[in-house]
Design a protein around this nucleic acid. Sequence first.
DNA 1: GCAACTTTGTGAAACTTTGCACGAGGGCGG
DNA 2: CCGCCCTCGTGCAAAGTTTCACAAAGTTGC
Lengths: 224, 224
Amino acid sequence: MVSDSSAVGEQGREIPDATVARLPLYHRALISLHRSGASTVSSEELATAAGVNAAKVRKDLSYFGSYGTRGVGYDVGQLLEEIRNDLGLQHPRNCIVVGTGNLGAALLSFGGFKDRGFAVVAAVDVDPARVGTTIGGIRVGHQDDLAGLVEANDVAIGLLTTPPVAAQQVADELVAAGVRSILNFAPTVVEAPEDVVVRHVDLASELEILAFHEGRREPIAPAS
Amino acid sequence: MVSDSSAVGEQGREIPDATVARLPLYHRALISLHRSGASTVSSEELATAAGVNAAKVRKDLSYFGSYGTRGVGYDVGQLLEEIRNDLGLQHPRNCIVVGTGNLGAALLSFGGFKDRGFAVVAAVDVDPARVGTTIGGIRVGHQDDLAGLVEANDVAIGLLTTPPVAAQQVADELVAAGVRSILNFAPTVVEAPEDVVVRHVDLASELEILAFHEGRREPIAPAS
DNA sequence: GCAACTTTGTGAAACTTTGCACGAGGGCGG
DNA sequence: CCGCCCTCGTGCAAAGTTTCACAAAGTTGC
């Protein structure tokens, strides 16, 4: 798992992981600003829209070059284009869903990725009852066809929504099929070679972090 | 949004946010170890199981007290119990799903939270076609009944899966109803009072981070 | 009961990230 | 054309996080 490796910027500079993690927030905010017709935006406004602080916005953007105009701000269209490029979204990325349980099915039906440059183009499962069905317009293939589907559809990203026990095995198959980016929804650690990036989304973990803060807030029942 | 505020430990020590974010990993790993019958575990083993490094494990655990035995390791059962307490999971926390689209429905049907101490006990939506239906054993109520359902079911956590435009409004309603923890799946920033903790899960952002690394890896198409 | 071995708990150093504060640069009004 | 005002870009200090390295503390075997 190399989800926290550092990357190199256009002039060969390192882009901090913390900055990379915020780019999507700026992207999202800019899409929204663009839609609402704004032509320029200041770091202050963008910061508010993205939920961060203005100095951070300016420093983050500066890693990719100077796209702002002093005294004015940033051109929304130009900055949006720039960020899209930095994120590598010049062309849409194709995704495959592995495991079509509740979450996998939801991902297949969910349309919200398209606006952001991603398309779910294939799905597989091991359960014969699910293979051959169509969810969200995608025909579910058999797990054994994974490599073929990856190749045929030019899949770049694997969305792993199997039960935990199967996750590592499936990840290995994805890697063998040439997928270098995995988003793992299974609540287990998944290992992958150095050059494969694995990121985790664990809903129960998020809930536990919320519960932690809940627990901290509750004053201990007033002692006698 | 105070998702990055610090918390105070049992002896009044501050628990770093980074540590809090790892507790669920330890929790998960310990549940698994416990199930497999292990009675003790070293920081090294726990680190491997949680996908982090051993020194981090020891330092993280030390914030909550000394539960290990030198030369031996940690007692799995005892440590599991301890972490469960630290996370505030002595009793299950009740959750309400707001918005029963693809993701909301998946959350209602998903059973994986129960093992981790959470129960989805209610759901609401604005769409009359959905109100009154039953998903995953939960009857969908109307948005207007939110406050009543929160109160009646002792709901601690709100799972926000509405479209972005409605998110802030719904968050305000949750807060007004007394919910102090919100997990926001809508791709927009949600503001809340100081004492409410809001965490974000944005799948498109995760995909964009993966795309960023993909883009870095691809050698630029050979010039000329 | 002692010595060898193992593994914790933690001080301190290295690294990363944040946020301030301010100089530099560009637009706009007069 | 000049000066004022606004906002970017960035050096720097402070805060937070990771990692190393080692003494302290416990176990096991003899």
